[in-house]
Design a protein around this nucleic acid. Structure first.
Length: 821
DNA sequence: GGAGGTGACGTACC
DNA sequence: ACCGGTACGTCACCTCC
């Protein structure tokens, strides 16, 4: 039969010792299809140089006889082909060794103790990745497919009758067709429990949100059967709750089952409770249970349905560019949906009134609702990532950026006739991790002061554009200087690169172009999601620089990274020189950007000057105007009187602030200090002098002394980055965490700990001895908030105007004293 | 027991 | 372990007198 098809979920199974790929997706009418396909299973044996044709033929005969019993099945080498390929950019002769089962390829490869074989490659990609490379059936693209309908067929052991799909097709051919929109069926879910710890408590309710569908299933019997609460469905106990949950997933037939931190909480919790009741959870389309994979983090996979944990995707794709200080569903929703969930105060479930329960239902439903809407906010990105990286959504939503970069490389290698490099072994990783750091970016030492009329230039995708332009990679690095090679001085040594384009720099060019495309789109319509997508690709481009220096990378090449930063330092310093020579004055520079004074030059002259600079830049390197600014301030470091790097504030002509590095943007400072500093910066940058700011600071100080500051203004928030017992230095936030633990407040690694510094009866020396939690009784420590929070946040700013704020305050104190005397 | 240096730690910049 | 290096600042801890 013929049909359209969009692949969504990828799985595999074995039948009679062979591998089959099972792809779940939809046709254009929305019917759920399952496509079964297979592909050649093989790996590569790269031959040593100079092995003769005759010897190769002999080898082929020998290898073709390999048979073994592995993993409880008979497996053998099916055939061997001889190919001319490239490996790390160099031509090689290689044997393509076809085996029966993908999972046995390691063992087959181990059988090849043959001296003529230099390397074995291509057996560690994962079956699904291998399949997508072979058959080019890319996730979330549209295809016109042809195949044989399996209807109670005995082929594959009757798999079609066990699958909950409309049609099951054995694939014959697939042709990519014009892209159509695709609106996936999505079911968002969220559970509420009476104990935070998995396996300890019970599930109180589960909420489900889908298209025109909202539901909260609960075993709590309260009288809320009134108008507005039709979404609540009562069940007799937790077992029935779990049964209903499974039933609704079946009924709603989602392509994506979406949670927020559901890999780490909801799914493991549901599993633990099902085990407790000795129940099965047949969520998979083949009736299978969710499969948990425990690595550095647990993942949960459901057959035929893509389980997405949105938290992970948001974390890798956007967190660096987000304003929110936490990754909580609430904060993320606020940023991307302009929406917050209603506040709900958690009480022990035994102490809740009926009204409290009703609030709880609403709260639970809202979590799923936000998750549902967030999914659609990120859907274009999830889909785009899947298609560009050619990996299923399950993977791309969980992989880190380095893995994503690697996916892009792996799926584009055959255009370069390249054999994939292997993953580093455990030992190799260990060795790589001990390497010395290489020198990074150049940061200009600023001279503290308030400046007027500034411009900022910056390089677009600076490091990636250098890698692409100068061809810096593992496959292009040379052992020694060669004719027509590029020489890069990295300080203690020189490195050489081949000038003929390597596959990694070439691919990077494509990533940069994609980034450009999205940035262009962003200029046309400025909305959160276009912005996020542009950033996501910027991240992918930037990650490809970090990738080469990352110990886990297949194409690890720290020399290329060192050369990249080395060249970047040369370029930025050269531009700084040219800017200064042209009559401007450089104030600051960090990595890829330069801030300078216009002085008597006009903006038009400056844009023309930028054009001139660009003419002389090689390859795809490009300098652009970030903007013109009315004023900017740079301050000294707390210790010493030199200018602080990575700390400045600018104001544009339309009075928009751009604050970097200051306490204002640091979440581990209290709001009082942050907001005061922010206002002070605004006043100074808008007016060009410190007068108003000084008055304002004095007001705040008075308020602090008179204890008029709200508790929420003085809370300090610090993240617990590891287990409490692992800390060598017991800092205030560790004490706060310990207190929380004593008070049975659930905390975990990664939690943001909130506390304040309180006045104590006895004189305490250490800050940590004065730590109190938000709800604890006590007065704040005036001295601490004055001297350790407020003053540090404003004194360096006032110092720019030769105002010694500490002196002013102390004099005031004396004034008060003298009045008393 | 206070001064001063150092290391651990968290966070931000690009 | 899950992209890199650069930089600032606080607090605890250690040494020294």
């Amino acid at each position: 039969m013929h049909t359209t098809f969009i692949p969504i979920d990828y799985g595999y199974f074995d039948f009679e010792g062979r591998n089959y790929i099972k792809i779940t997706g939809r046709d254009e009418k929305g019917k759920r299809l399952c496509v079964i396909d297979s592909c050649p299973i093989y790996f590569w044996a790269i031959l040593k140089a100079g092995v003769s044709e005759k010897e190769i033929e002999k080898l082929r005969g020998k290898i073709e006889k390999i048979q073994l019993d592995a993993n409880g099945r008979k497996t053998k080498v099916e055939k061997v082909e001889i190919h001319n390929k490239n490996f790390l950019g160099k031509p090689v002769k290689a044997l393509k060794i076809f085996a029966t089962n993908y999972k046995d390829m390691h063992e087959v490869a181990d059988k090849l103790g043959i001296p003529e074989i230099e390397k074995r490659r291509g057996y560690d990609l994962g079956l699904i990745t291998h399949y997508i490379i072979e058959k080019k059936l890319v996730p979330l693209n549209w295809y016109e497919i042809e195949g044989e309908v399996l209807n109670n067929s005995r082929e594959f052991g009757g798999i079609d009758s066990a699958l909950d799909v409309a049609v099951c097709i054995k694939l014959k051919s697939a042709k990519e067709i014009e892209n159509k929109t695709f609106v996936p069926r999505v079911l968002a879910f969220d559970i509420e429990t009476d104990e935070f710890q998995i396996g300890k408590g019970e599930i109180l309710m589960v909420s489900l949100v889908s298209d025109n569908f909202k539901k909260v299933i609960t075993s709590k019997q309260i009288n809320a059967k009134e108008k507005g609460f039709e979404f609540v469905e009562y069940v007799k106990d937790e077992e029935e709750l779990l049964e209903k949950f499974v039933a609704y997933v079946k009924k709603l037939a989602p392509d994506f089952l979406v949670g927020y931190f559901s890999d780490g909480f909801d799914m493991p919790y549901i599993k633990a409770r099902a085990e407790f009741h000795k129940m099965k959870l047949p969520l998979g389309l083949d009736g299978s249970q969710p499969v948990f994979h425990r690595g550095s983090m647990t993942t949960c996979r459901i057959d035929g349905i893509v389980h997405i944990d949105l938290l992970k995707f948001v974390d890798t794709a956007y967190s660096q560019y987000m304003q929110s200080e936490t990754m909580s569903l609430n904060d993320v929703s606020k940023e991307f949906l302009n929406d917050t969930k209603s506040n709900f105060e958690f009480k022990s479930s035994t102490k809740m009134s009926d009204e409290d329960w009703k609030d709880y239902f609403i709260y639970n439903l809202q979590d799923s609702d936000l998750t549902y809407r967030l999914f659609f906010k990120f859907w274009p990105d999830i889909r785009e990532f899947s298609r560009v990286l050619q990996e299923p959504s399950f993977e791309i939503s969980r992989n880190g950026m380095s893995k994503n970069v690697e996916s892009f490389i792996i799926h584009n290698l055959d255009r370069f006739n390249e054999i994939p490099e292997k993953r580093p072994t455990h030992d190799e990783i260990g060795e790589r991790r001990t390497r010395e750091k290489y020198e990074g970016a150049f940061v200009f030492q600023p001279i503290p002061g308030l400046y007027e009329n500034l411009a900022i230039f910056d390089f677009t995708s600076f490091w990636p554009s250098i890698i692409a332009t100068f061809n810096l990679s593992k496959s292009t690095i040379l052992e020694k200087k060669e004719k027509n090679s590029l020489e890069v001085d990295i300080g203690k040594s020189k490195i050489f690169f081949n000038k003929s384009p390597g596959f990694f720099p070439e691919m990077l060019k494509e990533i940069i172009l994609l980034r450009k495309k999205y940035k262009q789109e962003l200029k046309i319509k400025e909305d959160a999601i276009t912005k996020a997508r542009s950033n996501a690709f910027k991240l992918l481009a930037n990650a490809s620089y970090g990738y080469q220096g990352f110990f886990g990378a297949r194409y690890y090449c720290p020399e290329a990274s060192a050369a990249t930063t080395g060249l970047s330092r040369d370029f930025i310093k050269d531009i700084i020189n040219k800017i200064d020579k042209a009559g401007y004055r450089t104030i600051y520079s960090d990595t890829d950007s330069i801030a300078f004074l216009l002085d008597k030059k006009t903006e038009a002259e400056t844009t023309a000057f930028l054009k001139e600079l660009n003419k002389k830049l090689p390859g795809i390197m490009e300098l652009e105007l970030e903007g013109f600014f009315k004023r900017g301030i740079w301050v000294t470091k707390r210790a010493g009187d030199i200018g602080a790097k990575k700390k400045y504030a600018l104001v544009s002509k339309d009075n928009k602030l751009k604050i970097r590095g200051f306490e204002t943007v640091r979440r581990d400072w209290c709001r009082l200090a942050r907001e005061t500093q922010n206002k002070v910066l605004r006043m100074i940058l808008e007016d060009g002098n410190e007068k108003k700011a000084l008055i304002y600071i004095k007001e705040i100080i008075k308020k602090i002394r008179e204890r008029k500051i709200d508790r929420k203004e003085i809370l300090i928030r610090t993240q617990l980055k590891k287990q409490i017992s692992e800390y060598k230095n017991i800092s205030p936030h560790v004490i706060a965490a310990k207190k929380m633990q004593e008070q049975k407040i659930p905390i975990d690694e990664g939690a943001l700990i909130e506390y304040f510094i309180a006045e104590t009866r006895e004189k305490k020396k250490l800050v940590r001895e004065k730590v109190k939690l938000v709800h604890e009784k006590g007065e704040y420590d005036i001295k601490y908030y004055l001297e350790k929070q407020l003053l540090p946040a404003v004194e360096n700013i006032m110092q720019v105007f030769n105002v010694d704020i500490r002196q002013i305050i102390e004099n005031k104190k004396q004034d008060k004293l003298s009045k008393w005397i």
